[in-house]
Nucleic acid binder design. Structure first.
Lengths: 206, 206
DNA sequence: ACAAAGTCTGACCGATCGGTCAATTAGACT
DNA sequence: AGTCTAATTGACCGATCGGTCAGACTTTGT
């Protein structure tokens, strides 16, 4: 049998996965340009050469670190656009979106706050396109600036609070469990009223 | 008379001001670590040595570029905390805050999205402290996570949309004139209901 | 046992980093 | 004229950057 690199050893983590996570933390905190391969290698317990053995280049490392997140985002956008029941589609999307933000906080923070300077990276460019498309779908054909602003604030605000904000609002905060309901309430408030029509009181039951 | 460096020539800009602005654009787009003195110097039409003549170091350049913004922020927080009429103080603060976000978008974006990695820079650390204090004042003693989240999303979301979001939501968008009312509406919605007295069920009236 | 493939690393490369320094230029004042 | 000072620059420094490469170690297949 072929020893696939994804399940060689049940105890030890896959080197590529370790590096992707460590690199992601560095990229989202000091920026892609500011995170050096040496720092990433040191933090992961490898040598710089090992990093470049697993990933062709620093950009390739970034691409592979972000890919799962934008793949999931594409799923959600496709599903949102495909469902003919707009109200149900939007409600379902918001729920998925909350989970998405919590699960991929570092990835979102990275390509949200460095998207302009990383537009030459294919996966980042695709992510930007997805976000534009998502904004179009969510805001419908109404060209209202406020609707766009609501979406942008929800996206950028969540990216900020979930990686930077939580650490200084309180010295320590419970993980996703405490944050999820609050996040859902605020994001729903920002995204729901745009064109849901008969949305009487969204997300106030929890 | 003494030829003060701030008004030597009415036509030509002050070199320090030019550099502060150019540097701020670089810092907010590629990050502090990713923006090199050479790039800043080239963009400003100076040599790298000239940049280091006007500013003792790269960090000093960052400090001076951010200082006006956090000075204004301190004013606003002090005024908010001093006014015994909480409702009036909060309303006035929100108005000032909108203008602040529009005027200092690059500065806010910089110390919001790179605050963790730049905590060793005094002015950034002071800004972080101001934001924590602002969150405390706005959210009152209620330790509600959702209130904190609202403030963080408004702050981080505005920082994002005002520098990155506007460029890809539409190919070109009118300057602050079109954005201000929409921004005011969204930020007010996020910040106003927190503790404005009889806030029983915030944001359910639409 | 042996070879093949996979993994890891140190040494090294040219380029660029932030920063120092001496030299030069241009203006302002006596 | 001469002098002083602010402003600007190129040359240069040690350190670090992303990336290459050959070798060494480990694992796997036969």
């Amino acid at each position: 049998m072929i020893a696939n690199s994804t399940d060689r050893h049940p105890l030890r983590h896959n080197a590529g996965d370790d590096l992707r996570l460590i690199a992601l933390q560095q990229f989202s905190s000091v920026g892609f340009a500011g995170a050096s391969l040496q720092q990433i290698a040191d933090a992961a317990g490898y040598s710089k050469s090992s990093v470049l053995y697993h990933f062709a280049s620093k950009e390739a490392l970034l691409e592979e670190a972000l890919t799962p997140a934008i793949a999931r985002l594409r799923e959600m956008v496709d599903q949102l656009a495909a469902d003919p029941d707009r109200v149900r589609a939007r409600a379902r999307f918001i729920d998925d979106f909350i989970d998405f933000l919590l699960q991929f906080r570092l990835e979102v923070h990275t390509f949200i706050n460095q998207g302009q300077s990383l537009r030459h990276v294919p996966v980042v460019d695709r992510a930007q396109g997805l976000i534009v498309r998502l904004a179009d779908v969510l805001c419908d054909e109404t060209a209202s600036i406020e609707d766009r602003l609501r979406f942008g604030i929800a996206l950028g605000g969540a990216a900020y609070t979930l990686v930077a904000g939580l650490t200084f609002f309180n010295d320590e905060i419970a993980p996703a469990a405490d944050v999820r309901p609050a996040l859902r309430a605020v994001v729903t408030e920002l995204l729901a009223p745009v064109s849901v029509a008969g949305s009487s009181a969204p997300g106030t039951e929890n």
